[in-house]
Write a protein that binds this DNA or RNA. Structure first.
Lengths: 342, 342
DNA sequence: AACGATATCGCAAACGTTTGCGTAAAAAAA
DNA sequence: TTTTTTTACGCAAACGTTTGCGATATCGTT
């Protein structure tokens, strides 16, 4: 069975009028008599006519569709961002096309290209971990298509951005660890080329410095997924004897580390305190509940979409790029001890 | 700045040839001389020409895009399915448009309509919990657009489907609970109108029957989210004294229940055994680790996309609808006791 | 009766692409 | 040289929609 949705031409032919008359009748153009208008509307209703969005976009040179490029939707943080984006987009009559880069540069490039091919009106993107080349975004920028980065942004290109204050968050939670008595804090960080990785590391170092704690290079590891934690289990277990705290770059890594440590007989937080980043749902579900930083993903998504919308609607009058910074909120739970001092 | 991507006509004008010549040159049509072809290709490369996917879809009457309607991407099961779908789709040159119904019928109807408006070649859908009207899917079916349901399927319409053997899974895990000594097993189920809810309930009842355990109506509750668990906390705590096992319709509900029970002083699994459904990542991260059923979301997504692809490619020669049933695998972990008998 | 005004509609171009067909010029065959 | 074939390109329609403009009627005015 061939799937032919009825078009304006079909209606025109069936009713013995021209396509332009049908088009005008359907949108209540005054040039059309009431009789014809009603006839056409009734028929369109009957055959369940729906305008072809592709033809419309082509004609209007506007797709009312925006593209999203995100590392992986399986991560709660990203899927909440997407929900935030979608809710705003829907309410303004926009649709979204979601692409996953799977943390892979090549895939990210393909994604961007495909979205451009589909003539999205704007782009919302979060960089993949492996992105060290920005030409695909540069060409988007040069072609004048509005683009806003969120979370993992591209500082090489001057666009709107929505970010977390990673530095401050890391400083805050590391300070909390120190205040609760930790002195030898292991940092499980992410790729150094990631801006957020840099910021969180710097925040961690700043907190140590704030409290006159000497940083120990051996206690800074690149290890940012549960899989990597398990891969480097021996290393972790060996380190465990000499540390009293862990600050992991995200919650799932923190939880994985905790799992291993507890199996090795360490008590959390008595022997070792643990802190994460992101306030993933698991943080609240595990026992002991994970101390972490709340990142307001949904709101960040909303904000990103709003920034983009302003560009799409008042195209001309925004010249400077804008940066929205979300302050992560400290969620002190059970994997860290109560403050030892004020 | 206006965003005008260069078209075939732009190239034609710039080079003083016709649009048809450009079109043919770019796809190595033999009618075009090598000189012209090279000239055109070089220019196209220089200006970074990319065909307009909208125009192509309109012309070819094929969008090579498939629509996905899913309740919520924040759930790991659904986002794994999407990944499975995407990977197959990409490898065959298809794109996907993802929509969330947020478990809401009206939104689901809008989603379907929007996807049809964008002339997707096919539909992959998982019903929302509140869907009790299927006319939007019926009209898709009647218009001849291939559609395959997954997980939460619509048995009112005769389409391809990819499902989990919910009955068998529920029977399996309930049997495991009984075998490990449980006799008064609370079932936290979902909406009765959901087919999977029915199946899991029936599987639970069947297992009781298999073991000559009398079912207790008071022990069958509709409660399928952590939020609902917390809302009905008092009820749950009161019941807790009289039960020795819980079978929840999904893992997050199981974990939430466990959290409350432990806070009330119950020991898991000594006092109460707990089992979930789905093998969410949290199942493996919490302590004690949750006994559950593995649902192969990624593979289900792949299978669904493959079924759809067969319809899209050999349009004609598939008449009967096909059903792929995935057997969930029992993951016995720490929230249930070891088998008491064989 | 002749005129202008208004109401109601169709034509055609445009968006970007593909493709059957026609055609001019060049090459090959007679 | 004439005829036929081949080479290499352009025209125009089509996909579905919108919209400026032109074209008929019909009406009301003198």
């Amino acid at each position: 069975m061939k799937a032919h949705l009825t078009s304006i031409n079909d209606i025109a032919k069936a009713l013995g009028v021209s396509a332009s008359t049908v088009s005008r009748a359907l949108k209540d153009h005054p040039d059309i008599s009431e009789a014809t208008r009603e006839k056409i509307k009734a028929f369109a209703e009957k055959v369940n006519y729906r305008p072809n969005a592709l033809a419309l976009s082509l004609k209007k040179q506007v797709s009312r569709t925006i593209g999203i490029v995100v590392p992986e939707i399986v991560h709660h943080f990203f899927s909440s961002i997407i929900s935030g984006i979608e809710d705003i987009a829907y309410s303004k009559g926009y649709r979204v096309m979601i692409c996953q880069s799977n943390e892979d540069l090549a895939r990210e490039q393909m994604n961007v290209q495909a979205l451009l091919d589909h003539r999205v009106d704007g782009l919302l993107v979060c960089l993949s971990k492996s992105t060290n080349d920005f030409n695909h975004f540069l060409s988007v920028y040069r072609s004048g298509i509005p683009m806003v980065f969120f979370d993992r942004v591209c500082k090489e290109i001057d666009t709107d951005r929505v970010i977390t204050d990673d530095f401050n968050g890391a400083r805050l939670i590391t300070s909390h660890l120190i205040n609760s008595g930790c002195r030898r804090i292991l940092h499980l960080g992410t790729h150094p080329q990631l801006h957020i990785g840099q910021e969180r590391l710097q925040g961690y170092l700043q907190a140590l410095n704030d409290h006159k704690v000497t940083p120990i290079p051996e206690l800074i590891l690149r290890c940012d997924t549960p899989a990597e934690v398990h891969a480097r289990k021996d290393e972790l277990v060996k380190l465990a004897k000499s540390i009293d705290g862990i600050f992991a770059v995200n919650d799932s890594t923190a939880v994985a580390a905790m799992q291993i440590l507890r199996n090795e007989g360490f008590s959390i937080p008595r022997d070792i305190s643990i802190a994460g980043f992101g306030d993933d749902p698991i943080a609240d579900m595990i026992d002991p509940q994970l101390t972490t930083l709340e990142q307001q993903g949904y709101q960040m998504g909303q904000e990103a979409m709003n920034l983009l919308l302003e560009r799409l609607i008042d195209k001309q009058d925004i010249t400077e790029s804008r940066v929205k910074i979300f302050q992560p909120e400290l969620k002190i739970r059970k994997t860290t001890r109560a403050m030892a001092m004020k």
